[in-house]
């Protein structure tokens, strides 16, 4: 690859070496490891689904499609606000970028809140990892719910990490240490957030729709 690092003077006599393309490549490599991480879980799902088709079918019927779909719309919307935020900063509209970032954060929080109530409802029915009731369910249903909590839980952790990253970026835009000149940090946070959305897009049919 013919990446050429650009040098910039930061004004204080220091020469800063910037290589946006290298940074972007690194971010993408990290995202690939994320895809493979979730991919491993998709394989486990596929095999157990093949083994317990009936159990998966019945267990999936217990999940609330409306909540799953609502959360999909929430995440898709947050992806839109994120991408508009990145564009806003690239156009040097700092305040607008912050507004979009705040909206993204709010939507991410909404997603987690819905997930929280969804998990809580399952828990009150004795369906939660480690609970005795899971062992008494017909074959495969316990496996389905354990996979459900494992995969949406891991995804939820990613949402929380994304929110932390967005908060940091928001504050750094506020303090002026992220501007349109080094907007890469916001752009790569955006890439991460879109991946979180992308993974959810695949989780929705797996657990809510097609089983």
């Amino acid at each position: 690859m013919n990446t050429h690092a650009d040098t910039m003077n930061d004004g204080g006599g220091h020469v800063m070496h910037k290589d946006p393309e290298g940074a972007k490549t690194g971010m993408w490599l990290f995202l690939f490891t994320e895809i493979l991480l979730f991919g491993g879980l998709f394989i486990i799902y596929a095999i157990y689904r093949g083994m317990y088709t009936e159990g998966f079918h019945h267990a999936a019927g217990e999940l609330n499609i409306l909540l799953g779909v609502t959360n999909t719309v929430v995440l898709l919307t947050s992806s839109l606000t994120m991408v508009l935020g990145v564009s806003a900063l690239q156009r040097r509209k700092r305040g607008l970028a912050q507004l979009y970032l705040a909206a993204t954060l709010l939507l991410a929080g909404t997603f987690l809140l819905i997930k929280f109530f969804e998990w809580g409802a399952k828990r009150s029915h004795g369906i939660f990892p480690g609970m005795e009731h899971l062992h008494d369910l017909p074959p495969g249903e316990g496996v389905f719910f354990n996979l459900y909590f494992m995969m949406t839980g891991l995804h939820g952790i990613h949402v929380i990490i994304g929110m932390i990253v967005m908060t940091v970026v928001y504050n750094r835009i506020q303090s002026g240490s992220i501007t349109h000149e080094n907007q890469g940090i916001l752009e790569y946070s955006g890439l991460y957030w879109h991946l979180v959305d992308l993974i959810w897009i695949f989780l929705l049919p797996l657990f809510y729709l097609t089983a």
């Binding site: 992806s79 839109l80 994120m82 991408v83 955006g190 890439l191 879109h194 991946l195 959305d197 992308l198 897009i201 695949f202």
Partner: peptide, 12 residues
Amino acid sequence: VKGTLIAMFFMH
């Protein structure tokens, strides 16, 4: 298809 759209446009 949805995944491809997100990767192509949102992820640039």
